[in-house]
């Protein structure tokens, strides 16, 4: 199984205050938490064991918060793109709020609030349906030379 990702508009990103970065939309598949547990080393059963999750009062297995944070990071690095993308993200902070679940679409939106000395300050949120799963996301992104 694979996750389904849609990166937003392909028109060039405007790195200026008020500009929105391309929206990142991803529907994590049923087993994403299992793959992420293996990749990250976080095997907390609330992410991978449906019965356990329900026993501790959750509706079901929930996504790892850091997986969702990785989507917020990816929205920034993909907005820069190419060889400069991975190194462009200098800083990222997020607050975790509502729970997110596999097999439901997550939408990451990001907006440039300031640009200073070639670094954009970007606010970002991740939502699943009406639940805001990442709140107060703030990134520092080095603006690509090609502008």
């Amino acid at each position: 199984m694979t996750d389904t990702t849609t990166d937003g508009a392909t028109e060039p990103v405007r790195w200026e205050p008020g500009a929105e970065l391309p929206t990142l939309t991803i529907t994590p598949d049923r087993y994403v938490t299992v793959r992420y547990a293996g990749a990250s080393g976080d095997f907390n059963p609330i992410h991978i064991d449906e019965e356990f999750a329900q026993q501790v009062g959750l509706p079901g297995r929930i996504l790892h918060g850091l997986w969702t944070m990785a989507q917020v990071a990816r929205a920034q690095t993909d907005a820069v793109g190419g060889a400069e993308g991975p190194g462009a993200l200098q800083r990222l902070e997020v607050g975790f709020r509502g729970m997110a679940f596999p097999e439901q679409e997550i939408v990451v939106t990001s907006k440039v609030t300031a640009v200073e000395d070639g670094v954009a300050v970007v606010t970002s949120t991740a939502k699943q349906g009406s639940t805001r799963v990442v709140r107060g996301g703030s990134a520092h992104v080095r603006v690509p030379d090609r502008g």
Binding site: R35, A70, R74, T77, G82, A83, P86, L89
Partner: peptide, 27 residues
């Protein structure tokens, strides 16, 4: 596992072509 598609993370040749010694770790 996190859905990254940038070839720098996945393809040694692409990473080397961009000037890195090997594949790059996502932040």
């Amino acid at each position: 596992a996190v859905g990254e598609t940038n070839p720098l993370y996945l393809d040694v040749a692409a990473a080397r072509a961009a000037g890195y010694d090997d594949v790059v770790a996502p932040p």
